[in-house]
Design a protein around this nucleic acid. Structure first.
Lengths: 349, 349
DNA sequence: TTGAAAGCGCTAACAG
DNA sequence: CTGTTAGCGCTTTCAA
């Protein structure tokens, strides 16, 4: 009874897969009915028996819809792209997980991509492979260049950046996180606290600096020039940032670093300079990764709701594809909270 | 003169993009000619003047080919997937770069994906989005399950695994790397050297263990039971591996760890146990990452030709798509070599 | 409840 | 050298 999977014409088209037609043949119905039955749309009126036959046939033949054909027909790729500066950055592990979980709910695939030097979203998004994207800007692209980059037909959700002229951002509670980090050191008795920020181009970096400054002011800390400096997100930036800080400001007993990779770089530099952590110097940072857990000493960090932010970003994008408008939202749940490890301790003396 | 970009029918198809037809209209030629001119195929005989007009029109209209339509027509997605256990693992940074560079040469896109618990290559590859894939197996999937997973129509290049019943692997010089690492410790005077391997399920782990054992034998080291143990690729595995090793074997002055993340976990555990690195214990590992550079002490590692291996994998896959056969190859260029950092030093006494 | 037909954007065979 | 035509696999009217 089971009919053969139809052989395709030879020639340019020789990838033989089970098509909808094969399923329809097997179930003795037309393509149209098979399509409706498999779409899962409950409003499609199909007899119980026919639907069963079709589903069985599809199952027996191992049918998978061709997403290229489907996408061509419906003008929907059923995929979104998650674009980050560097996919191998452990900071993104939970972000990716959040995005994937929300996308899976909407039966959309997630394509990961890096925002390389030859940043060209057009080639990614302009060729129909994705319906929209979630983008984390990198350290170097200035606002106007980013805005030009975003001048595409597809919706874009910015991850942890707001941009004048663009609506659709998912923002983390950066200010609160940096404040919390600073307060932690203050509570441990630190009075001379330095701050190594993110790339000054990045608004998240500004928010974290604001958080540091607010907490410093609230605690009545005096900040000398050069005690609060810009840096970057990566280890090298943290390393050179700490070297600068150490050379220009004396007597620091604690530092807040805007991001975890930079903090690891800063801590290593401090240790190499002969400082003891946390006896001489406490270090705390924002974001959690396995590398913070497995550094020595373990790095105390403020955990951010990365997973939920990723989920929110994907959800908002999906809703946009369903017709809703993009908005700017803050994901503050769960609130930033401290993962206490070994890099912070009481201020010396 | 410039004609309007044609408005599409309203309805389900309302994504308005510039199509080939628009370019053809603008250049006053047929779609077919426009297609040939834009394909870049030099054997397509088109008058210089016509080609110029078409290229200009495409440029003026910002034409981008719809890859879904193209893929549907040619049965080629012009994309390959790179599937790894965890995209955020820094070990893959160079692998990704290598794959992307080779894919770019073939004008193929690279889609990154994680081999999650719900490992289902079918949904990735069976729906026409990619022409083939490069796969790095994870720690848990046994051979037979992997083989079943690979039972797909599209070609698969395995990264650093060989598998009976599957041809098409790109292998690193694991044995040489582990041997080199061990020899490095021997040259520093170490005689009691432990080994924390990868997941025993993984043939790369076996090769690295073989390298360790070969070097140990060549140097006439005596190995007591439990001195060479299986572990895993990640930090937690290295941490517990070291704890086991430390508890069961006394007097070790050096350890070789099969992979860098695990080595960082092992080193941290050693430091937390009060051992000094490298004064009491030297640690060396295979693979390089920024985290090895920025650990304290810096982790001495054996660098592997990850970038070239990635490039080779992608190249082989592209050639397969062009009709060639898959093979099993070893990428040993540049040869494994040591990046000397602070975690290794002369044996104590 | 089902089927016939059209067509998404593109490329390749073939004819002119 | 250029145009006509057909059709990749799918979904969605529209008519039966």
């Amino acid at each position: 009874m089971a009919s053969e999977v139809s052989p395709r014409r030879a020639g340019y088209y020789d990838v033989q897969v089970t098509t909808l037609q094969d399923v329809a043949d097997e179930a003795q119905v037309s393509r149209a009915v098979a399509s409706r039955a498999l779409s899962g749309d409950p409003s499609a009126r199909i007899s119980r028996e026919t639907r069963r036959r079709i589903l069985e046939a599809a199952d027996r033949l191992g049918y998978r819809p061709n997403q290229l054909a489907r996408g061509l027909r419906t003008a929907r790729a059923n995929a979104v792209a998650l674009v980050v500066p560097s996919v191998t950055n452990a900071v993104f592990a939970e972000l990716v997980a959040g995005v994937e979980s929300a996308a899976a709910t909407a039966e959309s695939a997630v394509l990961l991509a890096q925002l390389g030097a030859n940043a060209d979203l057009q080639s990614l998004v302009g060729e129909g492979r994705v319906d929209g994207l979630i983008l984390q800007r990198d350290e170097v692209l200035p606002d106007d260049a980013l805005l030009r980059l975003l001048d595409i037909r597809q919706p874009v959700v910015l991850f942890n950046s707001t941009l004048t002229g663009h609506v659709g951002s998912v923002i983390l509670p950066d200010e609160a996180a940096a404040r919390l980090a600073t307060e932690h050191l203050v509570q441990l008795g630190h009075r001379r606290i330095g701050f190594i920020g993110g790339p000054s181009i990045h608004d998240a970096a500004r928010r974290r600096q604001d958080g540091f400054l607010a907490a410093a002011e609230a605690a009545d800390l005096e900040l000398s020039a050069g005690q609060c400096i810009p840096g970057g997100w990566e280890a090298a930036a943290g390393a050179s940032g700490f070297a600068t800080l150490h050379a220009s400001v004396s007597g620091l007993t604690g530092i807040v670093v805007a991001s975890v990779n930079a903090a690891l770089g800063a801590m290593t530099t401090a240790l190499r300079l002969g400082l003891r952590v946390p006896e001489d110097l406490s270090i705390i940072s924002v974001h959690d990764t396995w590398s913070a857990e497995f550094s020595f000493p373990g790095l105390t960090v403020v955990r951010m709701p990365m997973r939920n932010a990723g989920r929110a970003a994907a959800q908002m994008l999906m809703e946009r594809l369903g017709g809703a408008e993009l908005r700017d939202i803050v994901v503050a749940h769960p609130m930033p909270h401290i993962a206490l490890r070994g890099s912070t301790g009481p201020a010396p003396e």
